[in-house]
Design a protein around this nucleic acid. Structure first.
Lengths: 166, 166, 166, 166
DNA sequence: TTTT
DNA sequence: TTTT
């Protein structure tokens, strides 16, 4: 009865952060930039960058952690989701994020590499069943950390679900 | 080089508010609900409603004011845009909204009517050139109010761009 | 590395036809109309109707058979797929269809009803894992027909994969 | 009242062909490949390539002719449109194409270059008002050829609207 | 915080 | 006909 769909193509501002929920499922967070350009009334070219906070769960989150890199170009399909939280300053705010259910690495050349000993070093597309997509389980410490092979360990678990959302 | 696209189908929580910028161009604001449903681990059906703040400029804004109504089903295509603002409490927050560039009324029956003496009383689709879409001009009092025929006058101009974004 | 996505909202020209593959999985076929309207150079309003052939597999196909009806408004998300076939006249042609992986019934009122003794008589949304979506298995006779409760039996199995694609 | 939207990201099989209508407006034609990959029941990785015929009118068509190149990665947003035609063999067929209203060059590196003396040698995004998009004017000889600077002249005009659609 |  |  309703549709909530977002399609983004943009570049990562940083490498993804991958954390694990108590049940061992991965949660990857990163943000991507999209730019819009237009000419103002004086004919001057203007640019505006929008940063989108992306959250990928489970298998997609793991793949993001393995293959996506700062500066890489990525296609994300998902939905908009808001979340209320209270900051360190005691102020309630609303955070918005994109919960992705589809992710495809674009830009075949240098960016988003990752290589390592994986079979898909360059590009690929990955889907996730919408039906598995329970809304925004809060990130939490991993039962079994499952360290990534070719990148640093995820942030310490006590950093998770801190007061700043992204 | 990047894509920022949102596609929503949902119902309006209230009638649109239409205001006018100094140059006489319309700005319509309203929010629409999308629902997602899933089963939790106990097999219980869960529902979550997300409210999306929509902004339509110019011709699209005028058409929204004329035809869209609380409860009506609408298709919106646009882009995500954030905006920083400082609330009455002096706290800075970020508001997110969807700047629509396409709008189509769905739900042929009672909702979204409007009828009046227009030729398209029921449904219709309306596009807007992306190139006309300068990013988020701040809403402002109308140079020439151009009252809507079949709905109440827009909110008093001194309400516009107040501290609460939506 | 690539994206092939179609989003349609339109009305069914006929009730869906549901057939079954040898393994018992459902395949629903129907077409939906989309209209575009524009003004020609003389200012006359023109309309053009495009008919889209939709194919839904498995669970989505079953749900379509149960709930979608001629005239009903439906949201379909999927991908474009072509298929070569040779007609009765011995001529090879290419058929295009939309393989849907998401379907949502819109238009809450009379259309698309179905009612019966199902829990979701009016609207609802249904997803399908992309990963289950093997490309276009040919439709075939059912191993176990599983008659639909509130609609006529599917077309005789020897009609399936005939020379005319839709 | 309806939506007909296609979003594609894929690579061009050849350089675009640009022709001109009698009124001097450009029409660019090219096809792009999208791939889907899945594992069959034996766990073997399968690939299927779909070729999409793209048509871009006016400004978008000119930009495509200037910047898009064989092998380049491109984002296309548009609508599905069918067209009946009779081939040399006297057989009537239906051709499907995507009429694009948005085009963005992706893949910043080598592909899609074009450089020349233009200001946007690498990537960029270009929109087109939906409202200008009259359905499929037939391609025709140019009133004023307007030769492209950095590519060969368009196909001879008597090749246009021949019996084979793409 | 990305990229051109 | 592209690409990895």
């Amino acid at each position: 009865m309703s549709v909530n769909k977002v399609i983004l193509v943009g570049r990562l501002g940083r490498d993804p952060e991958v954390r694990y929920m108590p049940n061992g499922e991965a949660v990857a967070n990163f943000s991507i930039a999209t730019d819009e350009q237009w000419k103002d009334r004086d004919g001057n070219r203007q640019t505006r960058t929008e940063w989108h906070n992306i959250t990928l769960y489970r298998k997609l989150g793991e793949i993001a952690g393995q293959y996506l890199r700062k500066g890489g170009l990525v296609y994300i399909e998902g939905r908009i989701q808001s979340r209320k939280y209270t900051g360190k300053d005691g102020v309630e705010r609303t955070a918005y994020e994109i919960i992705g259910n589809e992710m495809k690495m674009l830009g075949s050349k240098s960016d988003n590499a990752g290589g390592g000993n994986y079979q898909e070093p360059q590009g690929g597309d990955y889907g996730q069943s919408q039906s598995y997509n329970a809304p925004a389980p809060a990130a939490a410490p991993p039962a079994a950390p499952r360290r990534q092979e070719n990148r640093p360990a995820p942030a310490p678990v006590d950093d998770i679900d801190d007061d700043i959302p992204f």
